[in-house]
Design a protein around this nucleic acid. Structure first.
Length: 215
DNA sequence: ATCCCGAGGG
DNA sequence: CCCTCTGGAT
């Protein structure tokens, strides 16, 4: 896909998705960080069900440490991977207190040094909480980048780098959210709904999926 | 059965 | 590169 087509692809999604960040429940750095750590391999609904009570009990790192692993676990037992997540949330909160005065750090290096925080989570926090122009590549965006030719790459990092290069700078901050929604509802892993894709003029995947489903 | 708005470890 | 952790959705 040419650079122009890539820009057109993303612009088309921008028009089809009115308000990019309405479905995010939290925008303050600490709540967002914890919520994103909890959301790995589970649905938003599961996270949004558990987090209000969790944050009511522990609105800041000090309270989270005081709550402890067992206390956190009691709130998130309905979320997948809850055991490791309870451990990570408490350990991460302790590190925020020890290294960053209880605040969420604003650099990628410091964020990725926290347990349970990888590149994708760091990119979401940097983008949403701190206004950075990052692209958080999850499995949805990885799939879209490769299947449509928008940003092919062997690893999520390669897809991320290509997307950052090809996305119109003014759209970069919101693009990851448009792409994630597009991957979830339209350009799905199983049955992509190409006929109602806003970016179909820039992608020929529909010609392949009808003949041989993706594997 | 298979995958997920992943991360960490081997 | 591979595997595991987990509940939920499809």
């Amino acid at each position: 896909m040419s650079a122009d087509a890539a820009a057109g692809f993303i612009r088309a999604l921008a028009q089809a998705t009115p308000d990019p960040q309405t479905e995010l429940l939290y925008t303050d750095p600490y709540s967002l960080l914890v919520a994103v750590v909890l959301s790995a391999q589970t649905t938003d609904a599961a996270v949004n069900r558990a987090t209000p009570a969790l944050f009511a009990a522990a609105p800041d790192p000090a309270a989270m440490v005081a709550l402890g692993e067992a206390g956190v676990a009691a709130h998130i037992r309905t979320i997948g991977l809850w055991q490791a997540k309870a451990r990570n949330v408490v350990a991460l909160s302790r590190l925020l207190l020890e290294r960053h005065g209880g605040a969420v750090p604003e650099t990628r290096e410091a964020l990725e040094a926290l347990p349970g925080v990888g590149r994708k989570t760091a990119n979401v926090v940097l983008n949403v909480a701190f206004g950075a122009e990052t692209m958080a590549v999850d499995t949805h965006i990885f799939r879209i980048g490769n299947r449509t030719g928008l940003a092919p790459g062997r690893t999520p990092r390669e897809v991320e780098d290509r997307l950052v290069k090809r996305c119109p700078p003014a759209l970069l901050r919101s693009a990851h959210h448009w792409l994630i929604l597009h991957g979830r509802y339209v350009c799905k892993a199983r049955l992509p709904e190409c006929w109602r894709c806003a970016a179909r003029a820039f992608c020929n995947y529909r010609d392949k999926v009808l003949v041989a489903p993706a594997r």
